[in-house]
Write a protein that binds this DNA or RNA. Structure first.
Lengths: 240, 240
DNA sequence: GGTTGTGAATGTTTTCACAGCT
DNA sequence: AGCTGTGAAAACATTCACAACC
């Protein structure tokens, strides 16, 4: 796309607007992300019921936010009592689609890739690492976390055979775009990118990006702009 | 409870409201995060100037967003021409506080920890990995990425000696809370948490959390709720 | 011609506050 | 009394659209 008509339509981003039948409600992006976290916290609980205040504290959000989030799941608590843990896990899982399993391809088996391959939290969340790829001949053919490492050149064949739906890029930045294109060619339309590079892909491919350095820099930014002690609210101000 | 500034707008308590002297403007959280990204992209540029449209495309945002973000930095472009790369890098760096160096302690030297320790992008962004810790006797005393691995029990001593300001937790979930408390005891007030656990810390400690499984699950969520082909807008709908 | 900088408009997310249920 | 569920308000963020400028 080479649209250069002012600012109009540069990015065919995702618009979430919904006709929605009666009884159906769209779940905001932000709420969906937190629901996943509640699920995680709920799993560690040992009590039979839990209040919004308690669950919220454990998840690191306010109780108002939590109740609003759960309102998208549907009525699932008992006024005066709280939420039944077991039942809530079931309902949230249902909404997040955890019952559905997705097979994941992981490109790049360096330290980060191996950390991901060995990550324990995937299975319980509907995710299965199904294929590993690398470009390094030293690593190709070896096994990591019980899986064989394939040549990145075989992405299309292997991914189609393994019915992969989601791709993860844990390669160096220089290889990211090329690998991403190969994944898309293999029919993958959801990509998680750990490489510090922006990917240029068709609009219907969903890309999430995790930038490790960026997260640290955000901490540094706040450290720099920490309010002078005594002030009530945190402030981020710059003189021009 | 500590301020949990998560990836996807999950924030319990951030007040950015400021009397602010004339000429000063608060930088929104979201803009600050993107500014860091622009800085990264600018570094890869070889041209002398760049337009908002071009820079935006490389960073994966719209040009309107980019110009708005840069407006917080101050007027820094030339109408009809664009931004001078060199100068822009300087101004954005200034605002983000990249000139100031922060020393980082990394707890947990498993695959993820080693990936972080070896990450090339830190130095250029004002960050220095200054100390490594682990609880495994096998790893203590060894070296990773040219740094000695200390016993996690020595966090306080080593961190104070090394003047560490930021802590990173890359341990298993079970150890996270304990390690976090040790870091706080060592005087650290900014923590990046990779363990899939919520940290309960004093309110003045800033915590950012990166949950690898959550990022994947968000992709899966969208995959599940992909619009039926033919419909124009993407919709996320759940029946109740 | 082309591009920036920004007020205004729109869209999204969080917080408030309270009716209504147990 | 205690707690949920939710409409309404507030805060926050993005996008539009255009005047001002080169």
């Amino acid at each position: 796309m080479a649209t250069q008509v002012g600012d109009v339509h540069e990015d065919a981003a995702r618009r979430v607007a919904v006709p929605a039948r009666s009884g159906a409600r769209p779940i905001p992006q932000a709420s969906a992300a937190r629901l996943s976290r509640y699920l995680q916290v709920l799993g560690d609980l040992t009590t039979r019921t839990v209040s919004s205040a308690d669950l919220a504290r454990r998840a690191g959000v306010t109780s108002a936010t939590l109740r609003k989030d759960l309102s998208f799941v549907g009525p699932c608590g008992t006024p005066g009592v709280g939420y039944e843990v077991e039942a809530l896990i079931g309902q949230v899982s249902q909404v997040l689609g955890v019952h559905r399993r997705y097979r994941v391809a992981l490109a790049g088996v360096g330290h980060l890739g191996q950390a991901l391959a060995g990550y324990p939290g995937f299975t319980g969340r509907g995710l299965t690492i199904a294929a590993l790829f690398d470009a390094d001949p030293e690593r190709i053919g070896g096994t990591v976390a019980g899986l064989q490492v394939h040549d990145i050149a075989d992405v299309a064949t292997v991914c189609r055979a393994a019915d992969v739906a989601i791709g993860v890029i844990a390669t160096p930045a220089g290889a990211a775009q090329q690998v991403a294109e190969a994944l898309v060619d293999a029919g993958i339309r959801s990509i998680l990118n750990f490489a510090p590079a922006a990917l240029d892909l068709p609009a219907d491919v969903q890309v999430r990006r995790v930038d490790l350095a960026l997260e640290l820099q955000m901490l540094a930014f706040h450290e720099t702009h920490r309010e002078p002690a005594g002030s009530a609210g945190g402030a981020v101000v710059v003189r021009r």
